[in-house]
């Protein structure tokens, strides 16, 4: 069975989601639940850290696509950071850089949200 988890971290006003493992049609519900929890908590500046995300299929990509419009309408955003090259290639293949703010580092994404970067 696919192993996948979502960790929650708070970076000032930014809610970071640390994705770990393989995100496929079986595990996408966990990401869906995490993003819905952010919306319920009114944490709409969502930073998805993909440093430990090893795989993503269309089911995982679809979760981002299903929520981005509503979050932006409410003044928030989903920014995606630190993807491994082989995972970034999947986002790129489908034209995601046109729709989502994808940054090389978490710090860059935090800065774009307008919050101070956390101290090390």
């Amino acid at each position: 069975m696919s192993s996948f988890s979502v960790g929650f971290r708070t970076l000032g006003s930014v809610q970071a989601l640390d994705l770990r493992g393989e995100l496929d049609a079986h595990t996408a519900a966990e990401l869906e639940a995490a993003i819905e929890k952010c919306q319920q908590d009114d944490s709409l500046q969502i930073l998805v850290n993909g440093a430990n995300l090893m795989y993503i299929s269309s089911a995982g990509l679809g979760v981002f696509m299903a929520h981005i419009e509503e979050i932006r309408e409410k003044g928030g955003d989903i920014k995606i950071a630190a993807l491994q090259p082989k995972v970034y290639n999947v986002f790129d293949l489908l034209g995601f850089p046109m729709l989502f703010d994808i940054t090389e580092s978490e710090e860059e994404a935090v800065t774009k949200f307008g919050s101070p970067a956390p101290s090390a």
Partner: peptide
Amino acid sequence: LTRIVRSRRAGGLGVH
């Protein structure tokens, strides 16, 4: 992709 985002419905990407 833009239409999928606007419709807020995931899916439809697998065959692509």
